[in-house]
Nucleic acid binder design. Structure first.
Lengths: 359, 359
DNA sequence: AATTATACAGAAAACGTTTTCTGTGTCAAG
DNA sequence: CTTGACACAGAAAACGTTTTCTGTATAATT
């Protein structure tokens, strides 16, 4: 059985209270000699504080809950990793619960987290939230990362889709394109709305007229991108570039162009969105806008921690910008391409950068 | 503040002890009328047990730790999800810690988990383990899932790579191939060793002679697959099929074949391994052997739970088989292809299957 | 020199449970 | 009618901490 305060007290000849004060770095004054002796015997006994007991007393668990629809949905792992890395800096750990898009499981998950209890909850990639009254009744802070649809909510971290879409279009314009089509996502999604808006704003900025038949619907999937691109190519005045609202549809568009006997990027330039893993593997690899998922996770954790520790930072909504990753599908020349070393995965890139800046 | 036992006791007119016995479904006899009354007031007060207090008393936290090199490495999320789903059936939750392949962080992670404390630890996709003495000294059970290299360890769940490789080769033989090349992974990896062995065994079974120059090295990456395939194609007696030890190298091989002006699968058939997400997106999409990652996670959790609850199931090593996913890159005809509905992701498939078998 | 403030140490309460230990009333067996 | 067993209920200890409350010796102030 592990050593406890009592053991150290007995061994060192001081009281439990004093031992506790030394070991928690309390501001309470303890003579240097005593402190040293206690530290020494704690070390010798291999003391490791029992956080369960501490939590019972302090009502702080140094643990936060993460509620996610499904850890396997594509953006969840990097968001979670971002959260975990930020939490680690404050010695917090995270409990992860999946709800599988089910209201009952969501409720059960929150109950389960609250009774642990956790100091707060982060909702990741969360589509709905029907049991918010549970959170408020328990008086625990909550933060939302990348809410997919539904009404906007306070205390959330979301991607700046308007910005991302506009830099994608900017880039195509810089490359000389003025006939730029857009393939959208399902309209109920925030990201689809934002990216459409960014597309329109960028065209306006460059004084390019909006062509109605170049604005196509999509389903976030390869198939939808394929079909919409196919229709675009059949137009007599077909565009010279296509901006798809995600990488899967961009890939579908690439296939459609290729199947029509044309080349990407020589005949049609294509830009995607998300920087999914496959986008740098595929031929041609896809120029895309990264989703700043890792960063969003970090920021969400930051906000939650501040709420837990200081009670500050209530009711913010933070928008996070992603960068353009220039690859082959847009036809930019070699010199403009984003440094390939870190292309694989934005979050991994950040981890590597933190670890060893020279490697 | 949430209701506690004391509140229920006061409200219902019985003692804390009795309330506790009712609420924990203890075998201790309590009169039916009393039980009912207590249950009723507990419901009315919205009682939610404080697991911290319970844990302090029972020395059981209903929480297990998951130590992973990096949650973002490709197989980690589905393994974790498998673990979580199995744990959920026993009302256990999991704390996840990343070590980033660093010995100090590994040690810190284990310490952090043990002081929570957790009831056991699962090591996922773990490359090394230098701090095993910590686990044994704390007398907590541990299970290893998919250890990448190093000496085999007891209490582990690993993929049956020998089997997987052999069914891949079997399939190519069935399609009429007898000139089958192999691109291996780095030799230090268990999976590379196992898949090579499976390749050899399958050839032997079909009485096909092993050709030394058809056994190529690889690096698990697209580039390595590309180079090795390129060399194979330059041979005067080049093979008609290539089995690559993972999907990334299989994709590299596909590119090499295409760049040589040949077609996949008409001229060269290619089979990969892992069933990574991109393998069904890419053109041609890749016939591959699934890594039973989700299942491995479930089994690991099963073993750990049994150790925690009964103390049984010590020192097993479980091997898990994956299935062949037939797609386009091998040249099988349409009827042999694996049902496309669930191709996207094996673990997701399992989740969906559990949720609604008819959908 | 007397008083007051301060630096330090320990005893004990408290956090919310579970469970052992006591205690009482009822019932069955002798 | 007595005795032992048993069904039930409550009091209290225990889990390992943190922190308040007391207490004492020393230093600072008058």
């Amino acid at each position: 059985m592990p050593a406890k305060l009592e053991d150290i007290a007995r061994e060192s000849g001081f009281s439990i209270a004093t031992v506790s004060r030394v070991l928690t770095n309390s501001t309470y004054p303890v003579r240097a000699a005593v402190r040293e002796k206690i530290l020494e015997t704690a070390q010798a006994l291999g003391y490791r504080p029992n956080l369960i007991a501490r939590s019972l007393r302090t009502d702080q668990t140094n643990t936060v809950g993460i509620l996610v629809d499904d850890l396997l949905s594509p953006f969840s792992p990097p968001v979670v990793r971002g959260i975990q890395d930020r939490l680690k800096e404050n010695n917090f750990l995270s409990l992860i619960v999946n709800s599988d898009w089910d209201v009952d499981q969501e409720r059960a998950g929150i109950e389960s987290l609250l009774s642990r209890p956790v100091d707060g909850i982060i909702f990741v990639e969360y589509s709905h939230l029907t049991s918010s009254e549970l959170l408020t009744s328990a008086n625990k802070p909550g933060v939302f990362v990348h809410r997919l649809f539904g009404t906007p909510i306070k205390n959330s971290v979301v991607p700046d889709d308007v910005y991302g879409a506009s830099i994608a279009v900017d880039h195509l314009v810089t490359l000389g394109h003025r006939a730029i089509a857009y393939i959208n996502g399902p309209e109920s999604w925030h990201s689809a709305k934002g990216r459409l808006e960014g597309y329109k704003k960028a065209l306006e900025k460059h004084e390019i007229e909006l062509v109605e038949e170049w604005m196509m619907p999509g389903d976030w999937e390869v198939e939808g991108g394929y079909k919409s691109a196919q229709q675009l190519l059949q137009l007599s005045n077909h565009p010279t570039a296509i901006f798809a609202a995600n990488d899967l549809m961009a890939l579908g568009a690439i296939y459609a162009v290729q199947d029509a006997g044309l080349r990407v990027p020589q005949d049609i330039a294509i830009v995607g969105y998300d920087n999914r893993e496959f986008s740098w593997i595929v031929r041609p690899n896809i120029t895309t806008v990264e989703m700043p998922v890792y960063e969003m996770g970090r920021i969400a954790a930051e906000i939650l921690l501040q709420q837990i520790l200081d009670g500050t930072r209530e009711n913010e909504e933070v928008k996070v910008k992603g960068e353009l990753i220039v690859r082959d599908s847009c036809g930019a020349d070699q010199s403009q391409k984003t440094d390939r070393r870190f292309e694989r995965n934005t979050s991994l890139r950040r981890v590597l950068l933190n670890k060893d800046p020279d490697n």
